[in-house]
Write a protein that binds this DNA or RNA. Structure first.
Length: 433
RNA sequence: CGGAAUGUAGCGCAGCAUGGUAGCGCGCUUCACUGGGGGUGAAGAGGUCGCAGGUUCAAAUCCUGUCAUUCCGACCA
């Protein structure tokens, strides 16, 4: 894409309302604009990143055997009255009345709807286990939205729901998601610490939060440093129960629940860091299947109330979390897996025919090779182009100017390390292709 | 929901105490010169001063109300 024809409105100065680095950089690099408190417009590059994250989440869900569908954002109040959460959920739920005076709501989560769908569709244990997911906009009317998209009111979430015949099955479904989550975050280049958690408003017995480490995190974690050395390559292919129990046996607690006196981890092996919650998984048994009557015929012909779990990943929050974990004073540093483009071409001499011709040709070759490239073809100063490209944070920059062209080389800069190498066109395309 | 601020050009801000009809920097437009880290000069465009009332000859400025946004705390993907 040519930058001159793109829509990436960058800002030179820090917007006053943005307090944390990811919010500032998302506004400055032209990824988002605020519409109202906690509600954002996703601009082209922001959307590209979010879509790439969603794709990785989707691939890992599919790999784990979950099946994608899409439920509506607007739900009828009756479902929530059945589960008893309509009154319990409080003001955080955005309530709407339609033209027929029917009570509706903008869904903050989907346990009720999926359970209703399940009970109307599945009648036999033979159809279990079943794990359904969707990636969909949620709305929670937070009292105090803040930190840009990190705590917005409207957010994109992957949520899924597992249905099993018994606890053993449910536990297996839970563990599959546990592994899928670790894999998902690893692919995003994030260290995700699974932290034992309370089930909160969702309710239930077994629950883990996935926290990624970042200085600006909202919670303080204490964890066994062994977690960091765990090799995620072990988690490809079939799920090994031993691996899961080993992972789950590691100590990891939020500050409030951490007891220094009785901590099983020796002080020298205990690490503390700030974390951002990007995922949360729950096993909650029959909490919803019971109240909403989700039963199947078991092998003996008798009805069994199904065992359920639910699992969420904050897809839009991950965009901010990734920036919190990947930035420097000049801007964002995208991991390749989610970068809006892999490489940026900087044309230093717009008015130099040779230089522009070289850039145009290189741009076309990259496009033909399927390399995602953002070409800064604007008539702007070199400094402005460098600054914008660093701000936007593409992993690679190709700097094209008379110096290199005279030598017959292109300069390739690594955004993360700042390392610059001079390469022939062939080597350059080879390296990026 | 308790506490505290702030709303003036796209962004960042000044002006308000002591009322006299709006200004600075960046950005934007045009032209020229520049050209390897936000360059220089010249000429421009852009504002119902959040909104509604009130006081006054006169309100960005004083008063009342209202809306919005942000920050600190308690709560949450």
């Amino acid at each position: 894409m040519r930058l001159s024809k793109h829509f990436i409105p960058t800002i030179k100065e820090n917007p006053s309302e943005a307090q944390i680095v990811s919010h500032r950089l998302m506004l400055r690099s032209g990824m988002i604009r605020q519409s109202s408190a906690g509600i954002y417009i996703w601009l082209p590059t922001g959307l590209r990143v979010m879509n790439k994250i969603a794709d990785i989440v989707r691939e890992e869900q599919n790999r784990a055997g979950a099946i994608e569908l899409l439920m509506p954002t607007i739900q009828p109040a009756e479902l929530w009255q059945q589960s008893g959460r309509y009154d319990a959920y409080g003001k955080e739920m955005l309530r709407i009345t339609d033209r027929h005076e029917r009570e509706m709501l903008y869904g903050p989560t989907n346990e009720e709807m999926i359970t209703d769908l399940f009970k109307n569709s599945i009648k036999s244990y033979k159809d279990l286990p079943l794990n359904l997911y969707h990636i969909q906009w949620k709305f929670r009317d937070e009292v105090r939205p803040r930190f840009g998209i990190m705590r917005g009111r409207e957010f994109l979430m992957k949520d899924n729901y597992s249905f099993d015949l018994d606890f053993e099955g449910a536990k297996e479904s839970y563990n599959k998601m546990y592994v899928a989550y670790l894999r998902t975050f690893a692919r995003l280049g994030l260290i995700a610490i699974p932290v034992r958690a309370d089930a909160g408003a969702i309710g239930g017995d077994l629950s883990h939060e996935f926290q990624i480490l970042a200085d600006t995190g909202e919670s303080t974690l204490y964890y066994d440093k062994e977690i960091e050395s765990f090799d995620l390559d072990d988690l490809t292919g079939d799920i090994d129960d031993e691996t899961v129990s080993k992972l789950q046996s590691y100590y990891a607690m939020e500050e409030e629940k951490h007891d220094a006196e009785n901590c099983p981890v020796a002080p020298e092996n205990l690490k503390t860091a700030k974390g951002i919650e990007v995922g949360h998984i729950f096993y909650f048994g029959t909490k919803y299947s019971e109240s909403m009557g989700a039963k199947v015929a078991g092998p003996d012909g008798n009805e069994v109330t199904v065992e359920m779990g639910s699992y969420g990943i904050g897809v839009s929050r991950l965009v901010g979390a990734l920036i919190e974990a990947n930035h420097d004073e000049n801007g964002i540093i995208w991991p390749e897996s989610v970068a809006p483009y892999k490489v940026g071409i900087i044309n230093l001499r717009f008015k130099d025919e040779n230089c522009t011709a070289a850039c145009d040709a290189l741009y076309e070759k990259m496009q033909n090779l399927g390399i995602e490239v953002l070409y800064d073809d604007r008539d702007a100063g070199a400094g402005a182009k460098f600054a914008d490209m660093d701000l936007i944070g593409l992993p690679w920059q190709v700097v094209v100017g008379p110096k290199g062209l005279d030598k017959g080389v292109y300069e390739l800069k690594n955004r993360r390390t700042g390392e610059r190498v001079e390469l022939s066109e062939e080597d350059l395309l080879e390296k990026l292709g």
